[in-house]
Design a protein around this nucleic acid. Structure first.
Lengths: 215, 215
DNA sequence: GAGTTACGGTACGTCGCGTATCATAACTCT
DNA sequence: AGAGTTATGATACGCGACGTACCGTAACTC
C-alpha cells in the first residue's frame, strides 16, 4: 500500500518466495494484525466517520507513527481491512440443482453481511465505496468481480442443464440476485432464508402470468 | 427539528394555519433555504465526510450559530436536505401497459439518482442511512415507504390486468426492481435505459426455461 | 416605546489530524 | 562482537473543525 517494505503489499517481486532479507529491523506481523483488529472493532462500534487513528493506535497498543508508516490514510487502512474480511468465502458447489445453487448465491451474500464482521464494516463503508474511487475501484476489481464470476458460473451451469434461458444477461442476473440483499441492508427488511427463497422463486418464475409480448 | 420555533418542524400544532404570531423576531425562511442550498452544494462537491458547518455558514452568508440554532447536528441537517430533495418525484401514471409502468418504476429510481442533486447526496449518506437509525428511520418511513407504495400500485394494476401473477410478493418485487439500481450505484455499472429495460424484461420472463419444480 | 427572539460575527477550549523527532529494539552483514 | 540499518512506542507540534458562549444589532409583538 504505502511502501515496498511490508508483507502488506502485493510482494514487490522478490526472487525468494519467503523474504528478501533486507537490512534493519523487519516489520512486525503481529503489529500489523493488531492494527487491523483494532480498526475492525472500532469501525463496528462507532462507524467509519468516527474512526480515529489515535484511538486505533491506543487500542492496538501501538504508536501512531507505526500506523502512518504502513498506510497513508484511513481509507487505505479500511480498504485492506475490507479485502481481508471479504476473502474468506464459501464457494458455491456444483450440486446439480440450479434452484439450490441460486439460493446459495443469495444466501452467501446474506451470510457475509449478517454473520461476519464483514457486514458492519462494509455497511460503514458503503458511501465511500460508492463515492471514492481510491476505495471503490480496488474493491470492485477484486471482491465484486469475484462474486460476479461465481454467480456467472452458477447461471452458466443452469443454462447447460436446460434450467435457465440461454439469453439471460449474466450481469443483470447477478444484480437481480444480490441487489435486493443490499437494498434491504440499506433500507431495512429481514435478511433471512425466507427472503432468499422468495427472491429466487420470483426470479425463476418471473412476474408475468402469461408470456408478455416480446420487443 | 431542534425546537418548536421554526417553520421547519412539522408545525407544532398551532391553531392558525399560517403562523402563531409569537413575540420576537421570526426565523428567516430565506436563511433556512440558503443553509440547505449551501449544504447541498458542499455535499455534492466534497462528500458528506468533508462537510464542515463552518464552510456551510460561510457559503450561505450566515453565522455558524444560526445553523446550530436550527439543527443539532450535521446528520439532522443532512436528513432534512435529503427529504427535501427526495420529495419532487414524477408519479407513475396508469398507462394501461404493465411493462411500460414497470420500466418507469426503474427509470424513476435511475433518474433520481443520476439526474438530480438527490443522487450525490444520498450516495454520500448511504452508510449513515444504513447505520444510523436517527437518519435511517425517518428516511425509510417517508421516502422508501412512498416508493414502495407506488410500485405496489403498479404491481397491483398489473395483476388486475392479468399481466402479473397473483401470488407475487409486492415487497420482494419492489426490491427486485430497484435493488439492482442501488447495486450499480454502489458497485458500478451503467445506469441507463438499456439497464432498466433489461431488468424489467428479465423480471417479467423469469430465469427459468421451463417451469421449475415447485416447492 | 418596552420586551423578546433571531441575526452575523468573534472568541473560546477541545479534539483529531498528519508530521517530526527521539531513544530504543530487532535484524543483517562483516 | 560490532557497525549499519530499519522499525517501534512515545511525545510534541501546528492546523483546522468542532460545538458553545457571548456580543451588539435587527426584526417583530404588544
Amino acid at each position: 500500500m504505502r511502501d515496498s517494505r511490508g508483507a502488506t503489499s502485493v510482494s514487490a517481486g522478490g526472487l525468494s518466495p519467503t523474504r528478501v532479507a533486507r537490512p534493519g529491523r523487519p516489520r512486525s506481523d503481529k503489529v500489523n494484525q493488531a492494527i487491523l483488529d483494532a480498526t475492525r472493532d472500532l469501525i463496528v462500534e462507532h462507524g467509519f466517520a468516527d474512526l480515529h487513528l489515535e484511538h486505533v493506535a491506543a487500542r492496538a497498543g501501538v504508536g501512531k507513527s507505526t500506523i502512518y508508516r504502513r498506510w497513508a490514510s484511513k481509507e487505505e487502512l479500511a480498504l485492506e481491512l475490507l479485502l481481508a474480511l471479504a476473502s474468506p468465502h464459501i464457494a458455491i458447489e456444483d450440486t446439480g440443482n440450479t434452484r439450490e445453487e441460486l439460493t446459495s448465491s443469495v444466501n452467501n451474500a446474506i451470510r457475509g453481511l449478517t454473520r461476519s464482521p464483514f457486514g458492519p464494516v462494509i455497511r460503514a463503508l458503503l458511501s465511500h465505496i460508492a463515492v471514492d474511487p481510491a476505495l471503490g475501484d480496488p474493491f470492485r476489481a477484486t471482491v465484486v468481480q469475484a462474486r460476479r464470476t461465481e454467480i456467472a458460473a452458477v447461471i452458466g451451469r443452469g443454462i447447460e442443464r436446460g434450467d435457465v434461458r440461454r439469453d439471460v444477461n449474466v450481469d443483470v442476473a447477478t444484480e437481480l440476485l444480490v441487489g435486493p440483499v443490499y437494498f434491504r441492508l440499506i433500507f431495512g427488511g429481514e435478511l433471512d432464508d425466507v427472503f432468499a427463497n422468495s427472491v429466487v422463486d420470483t426470479l425463476l418464475q418471473g412476474f408475468a402470468r402469461d408470456l408478455p409480448e416480446r420487443a
